[in-house]
Design a binder for these strands. Structure first.
Length: 836
RNA sequence: GCGAGAGUGGCGGAAUUGGCAGACGCACUGGACUUAGGAUCCAGCGGGAUAACCGUAGGGGUUCGAAUCCCCUCUCUCGCACCA
């Protein structure tokens, strides 16, 4: 009998039949159903749930494939794995579909969910579909309303009138995080303007320090995500300084990080929105000019105003204050570049040492006073071309002259404190999270407005406040819910008199701030989070998603976790222990988009090549953090690989069906030993690549190598039982190691190899340290660092032996000839470098 | 401007406690099988007069030895950007 050939027509790799078969097998047998079991170690792997926009795209496919490999690997490793999936189902596209297509957002959303669920099932992902949740389901958002009320009671939710970001196109408010650096809406890219509105806010600033502090306690997160979050929180240490108003007993508070330059403060700049601007200018000759300026700035787009390049403009408001350390009288201006939301909305302007103030002073002819001298230079305010912003020695600063600026910051802060004119202060960029949205398709804010009782939260027994279904969504005229009398008109929970409901809905980022916790107990109907179940599953061991959520979703989810902890619903400080941010899927080097016409449709790919091929390609084409360029040729290659695996196993199966997998019972030599070694090296490589680095591309590559070696082996080896048992060992390991990546084909092959238990319930193989060892090693011989020869040495040879062998090697001898040998370096069983 | 990351064959990518550069795949070339091959198998595949030698964005340095460490320059990607 020969191992090499088999003349029987092999069965074709029928991926359609195979994938259908195993998907229904998994479903029927509840293979992926997760059950709490305190006797087993749990592993919670989660991918960011999708917005049901219509169809799954390649980004999802990649994201979920990565998660699926991790989930399946951990299952085979014996962990009790929770791997859920659901829908971030509230949001604007549903509403837009209603406006343009006349279809109800609920129907549109449900249709999309049904379609996309089937797509995910066709990919063979190992989700526990019994735990599926949808954020637009009242049984989900009911609890979100409960959290809102609890937060309201604790003062973590408040309503305030203020300037907010407004997207003209979405006709709704945006949180600061949701406005891009260029002042555009995160969703539709239109320019964002400002509006005065009464809005609900989550007090995320109560958690600023903790959110920042824990950025150093998340070793499982990519550094760049943490850097982005730290930047966003934007902590800066500085000083508050009080500038008394002339002829008044009030003062203006400013925040500065350069209190060492206070002696150079020659004017004050206030944000145009600062209440003092109107108040102080009242009755002065400047009043009308000031009013005009405020109006002008208000009209400016956020993008323009927040841009560094925008011309600095301002106006004198007709009032003066006193510099508390120089006692000099200095003018007060309103300036377009001063932001009301940061610090105190007012700054002391030091033109000599701040570029913005410098430009401003030049433009309006305000004196420039140098107070920090750079080492070895003298600054002349008349000839300076820009501000000197670096450190130096203080001059013109009274008792502080001669002091280094760094030290002066301490001393001046202390001085200000001692005279009760300010003191050290910490400033943050992070502001409270505005969550009101003037939209229909979202979670209703559970609040009632009563003329007598004011703002009253809906009693817990009355939850959920159901989102009404009979609503006409037009896209005009503000909150659609305001036009539903049955919804708006209610009675006050307190005094039972007529009252009105809040008609705005919550930002959908609230919905996704706690879904990961709800997966642990999706059916819990008495409490939002079941104490025992959440205690068993949380926190998420591995979270996987796109980098685009580095700030938005991930910061909100961290905040919400801390809130829920403080409300007593869970006991973790952070929701996600490890985070993997995968790169984008590109086509022809560009992001896929309809307008570019470079969209690859997952459905088509699955139909043409099967889910396993699509999965393998996603994993093989590049490591997860990097962008992946989709190529048809690459997919063909992955498909070819699976075909080769299929043929190999089918060809060999008749020969190896009666032998047992080699179990180390007899001594191996030659090709048998080599294949056995390769098998175990591959187990080691694939295990480490999955476990330690998520480098599935190299894991697949090593499986391809094993496949190639098995091929070679079959043409060389004899058909004796020992050979066949080694062959069987190699093939079985190839199939089992490949199974997390290409589960359908591997289940099928596993069954055809005669296994009764499915592969996902089989244990992950362990490698044998002994088998991996090479009996001979190839040692590279270098002369002056250049490779000149390679010799084979016994694995037990010591350095001296290797050195001798290298020096006596013919080719080396002839190259060295009679040149004197200066030194010889030997790297253990790897390399010899001869220096001549 | 600041911060982070990256730059390796025709392409995607391997190799990171400094030790054989280019694993694996794609594309390409030649061959086998074949009525046929866009299937499959075998072989080749950084450049080069196939010899020296040169090659990991460019230049310098450390070292017996550098894709890897250090310095400078360039390019690209991402994030932040009037935050006082």
């Amino acid at each position: 009998m020969s191992v090499t050939t088999d003349h029987a027509m092999p069965t074709k790799y029928d991926f359609k039949m195979i994938e259908r078969k195993w998907q229904s097998f998994w479903e029927k047998n509840g293979v992926f159903r997760a059950k709490e079991d305190p006797s087993r170690a749990k592993y919670y792997v989660l991918e960011m749930f999708p917005y049901p926009s219509g169809k799954i795209h390649m980004g999802h496919v990649r994201n979920y494939t990565i998660g699926d490999v991790v989930a399946r690997y951990k299952m085979m490793r014996g962990y009790n794995v929770l791997h859920p999936m659901g829908w971030d189902a509230f949001g604007m596209p549903a509403e837009n579909a209603a406006i343009s297509g006349g279809i109800h957002p609920a129907k549109w959303t449900m249709d999309n969910i049904n379609y996309m669920r089937n797509q995910l099932k066709a990919m063979g992902f190992s989700y526990d579909w019994e735990r599926e949740i949808s954020t637009c389901d009242p049984s989900y958002y009911k609890w979100e309303q409960l959290f809102f009320i609890k937060m309201f009671e604790k003062g973590l939710v408040y309503k305030k009138k203020g300037t907010v970001n407004w997207c003209e196109s979405c006709e709704t408010v945006l949180a600061n995080e949701q406005v891009s650096a260029s002042g555009r809406c995160w969703r539709c890219e239109s320019l964002v303007t400002q509006r005065e509105l009464d809005q609900w806010f989550f007090k995320i600033t109560d958690y600023t320090e903790e959110l920042l502090e824990y950025c150093d306690k998340l070793p499982g997160w990519p550094e760049r995500v943490l850097v982005m979050q730290r930047n966003w929180i934007g902590r800066s240490e500085g000083c508050e300084i009080h500038f008394p108003l002339e002829n008044s007993d009030t003062y203006i508070k400013v925040f500065t990080t350069r209190q060492d330059t206070v002696f150079g403060a020659t004017f004050l700049s206030l944000a145009p929105e600062h209440p003092f601007v109107l108040e102080l200018s009242k009755g002065t000759p400047q009043e009308s000019e000031v009013r005009e300026f405020i109006e002008k700035v208000k009209r400016e787009e956020v993008a323009r105003r927040a841009n560094q390049c925008t011309e600095k403009e301002g106006v004198f408001i007709g009032a003066y204050c006193i510099n508390p350390l120089t006692n000099k009288r200095i003018p007060i201006y309103a300036a377009n570049f001063v932001l009301m939301e940061y610090g105190t909305g007012a700054i002391m302007a030091v033109p000599a040492h701040d570029q913005r103030d410098f430009e401003f002073a030049k433009k309006y002819n305000i004196p420039i006073q140098v107070v920090v001298q750079p080492p070895g230079k003298t600054l002349n305010p008349d000839t300076m071309e820009g501000a000197y912003v670096d450190e130096g020695i203080l001059i013109n600063s009274g008792q502080f002259s001669g002091m280094e600026s760094v030290k002066a910051r301490e001393a001046i802060a202390e001085k200000l404190k001692s005279i009760n004119m300010g003191g050290k202060e910490v400033g943050y960029k992070l502001r409270d999270w505005g969550i009101s949205r003037q939209r229909y398709w979202g979670v209703p804010i559970p609040i009632v407005y009563c003329d007598k009782c004011g703002t009253v939260p809906v009693p817990l027994n009355d939850l959920p406040v159901l989102l009404p279904m009979d609503v006409e969504v037009t896209g005009f005229g503000g909150s659609p819910l305001a036009n539903v009398p049955d919804f708006v008109n209610t009675t006050c929970p307190n005094c039972k008199s007529a009252a009105k409901r809040e008609v705005e809905t919550m930002d959908t980022f609230v919905d996704s701030s706690w879904y990961f916790a709800r997966y642990t107990c999706p059916d819990s109907d008495k409490v939002p989070l079941d104490e025992d179940k959440i205690a068993y599953w949380m926190p998420v061991d591995q979270y996987i998603g796109g980098i685009e959520h580095a700030i938005l979703h991930l910061l909100y989810a961290r905040f919400f976790t801390k809130v829920l902890r403080d409300l007593g619903w869970m006991k973790w400080d952070e929701p996600f222990t490890n985070l993997l941010t995968q790169g984008m899927v590109l086509k022809d080097g560009a992001k896929m988009s309809k307008s570019k016409g470079n969209v690859v449709d997952p459905d088509e790919m699955i139909a043409k090549y099967g889910a396993d091929t699509v999965r393998v390609f996603c994993l093989f084409a590049s490591p997860p953090e990097r962008d992946l360029d989709w190529t048809d040729a690459g997919v063909e290659g992955s498909h070819r690989f699976l075909n080769r695996v299929w043929r190999l196993v089918m060809d060999a199966s008749t020969h190896i069906s009666h032998v047992k997998s080699y179990a180390g019972d007899s001594l191996l030599e030659g090709p048998l030993r080599s294949l056995h070694r390769k098998t175990h090296q591959t187990i080691k490589k694939v295990t480490e690549d999955i476990e330690e680095r998520f480098h599935f591309n190299t894991a697949v590559a090593s499986l391809m190598e094993l496949l190639n070696d098995i091929h070679t082996f079959r043409t060389e080896a004899k058909g004796d039982t020992l050979s066949l048992s080694v062959l069987r060992e190699a093939i079985e390991n190839l199939v089992i190691l490949l199974s997390p990546m290409a589960p359908h084909i591997c289940e099928e092959l596993w069954e055809r190899l005669g296994h009764k238990e499915c592969i996902i319930r089989s244990p992950w193989p362990e490698f044998d340290e002994e088998a991996i060892k090479e009996e001979t090693k190839v040692v590279v011989i270098q002369i002056n660092g250049k490779v000149r020869a390679k010799i084979s040495v016994n694995a037990h040879a010591d350095d001296e032996e290797i050195k001798d062998k290298a020096l006596s090697f013919e080719r080396i001898k002839s190259l060295i000839q009679d040149k004197p040998i200066k030194k010889v370096f030997v790297v253990q069983k790897k390399l010899v470098n001869i220096v001549v």
